[in-house]
Design a protein around this nucleic acid. Structure first.
Lengths: 248, 248
DNA sequence: AAGTGGTCTAGACCACGTT
DNA sequence: ACGTGGTCTAGACCACTTG
């Protein structure tokens, strides 16, 4: 029999995470900046140590705590929180918000184009060279921050979007308007200077340098489905990367 | 007496990761883009399912595979082709080799300096402002590729290195000459143009853009121990990053 | 030596997507 | 109904740091 009111099934380690986080924030646990040992926590929450470790792992991934072998788990009270992890694929709207600015979008252009040969090879689209070009300027606190050109082969479209209904992020765009959603992206990181056209669009000083990202977005079926060229003003949006030493 | 170079004890799930990755890359496993079920893999490698799951989790974090509940684990071919992953902390010598060039080092300068106030705050070194400055130019195939300045507080040194015995990578340098080794680094990624001095050192064209990395290297004790400023010619060394979509 | 987090196992059951 | 990955347990032992 089908349940009439399906309950949302949240894993135990995430329930524990919510409660533990609440306890940390209200100072009920770890006032001294140190969390109790895993064994104590697992007893308190009446879960196995493996489960509490999943919880702590999740908190660590969020940058909220740091665990140290042989010492303990520690709360990261703000401090050096790296918010702009470059390996997390977020929409630019969210990116600007995370970097402490108020985002808005301007100068949206949506028009059909023919992909050039290089782009066709890159996207494995030798038959049909038609594409939509979506250009947008993202602002942060009234300053131009990011200019994006997205090339979307028309063969991948379910339907043509109306200019008024374009989502802020290309990931949501793919969810709504493409046959497949975006699973992962590969970005090349290139330092560059703006040409005259871009300088005018982004109101740049002459000689100002920009970060250029050339991004290829892949579907779940591992096919390239969207190509983006992104210009980022690093004065507003500063990318950081946490690099872990390779083990071998 | 404390061992400076204890034997590396690599966890089982990472050993399995290395073997599995090799098998994927040579096409011995998952030619159709799909990996065998976890149960099959755990039998093949003679490890528990929990261990093979740790392996797969690690591969997924690297953007090399995608796992889907109820369906299976899939290979990200795009991610496999990325050799210059910016989130892996490698020495520059290896970096140049990985990008297909033959590395060499030139113009090594090693001299004592006084850290300025900003750098002292960054490195938590208010008492002793003495440091070593290590400057080096890395070449790729006879072309200047990377120019690095490393600031090493003398308080962190076990002994002064001789100019002839400086390792290629700052990570090895820390292993040999510092009290603590480097555990992870945080890099800011900045597009820039060379000033006159740098242009001369790296034989740059006027107006050429560079990628500048400002890197703070942390010890296992989570203390900043080395600061680096790195200029990369992106014509020779192109960084790429695999970005996985955030779940929410 | 004691305390802490890291790894590993064997087994059980659940949730998701396909057939 | 079946096969897949996701969660959870209980217990064991190992590795790292500090007294």
């Amino acid at each position: 029999m089908k349940k009439k009111f399906p309950v949302q099934n949240i894993p135990l380690y995430l329930k524990v995470k919510t409660i533990l986080l609440e306890a940390i924030q209200t100072g009920k646990i770890g006032q001294n900046g140190k969390l109790p040992p895993e064994k104590v926590l697992s007893d308190q929450f009446k879960v196995s140590r493996a489960t509490i470790r999943s919880t702590l792992q999740s908190l660590e991934k969020d940058g909220l705590i740091t665990r140290r072998h042989g010492i303990g788990s520690f709360i990261n009270n703000g401090g050096l929180q790296v918010k702009m992890r470059i390996n997390e694929a977020k929409g630019f709207f969210q990116l600007i918000r995370d970097s402490g600015h108020t985002p808005s979008i301007d100068k949206t252009v949506l028009k059909p184009v023919i992909m050039d040969e290089k782009l066709c090879r890159l996207m494995d689209m030798t038959q049909n060279r038609n594409a939509l070009l979506l250009e947008r300027l993202f602002w942060g606190d009234g300053k131009p921050a990011i200019f994006v050109s997205e090339f979307i082969p028309t063969a991948n479209l379910i339907q043509e979007p109306e200019p008024g209904e374009i989502p802020h992020s290309i990931f949501e765009f793919a969810d709504y308007f493409l046959h497949d959603s975006i699973e992962y992206s590969i970005s090349e990181i290139i330092p560059t200077r703006a040409d005259a056209g871009l300088r005018k669009k982004m109101l740049l000083e002459p000689g100002e340098t920009l970060l250029k990202l050339e991004e290829l977005h892949y579907s779940k079926q591992d096919k390239p489905i969207v190509f983006s060229i992104v210009y980022v003003r690093d004065q507003l949006i500063r990318f950081r990367v946490v690099r872990k030493r390779q083990q071998f």
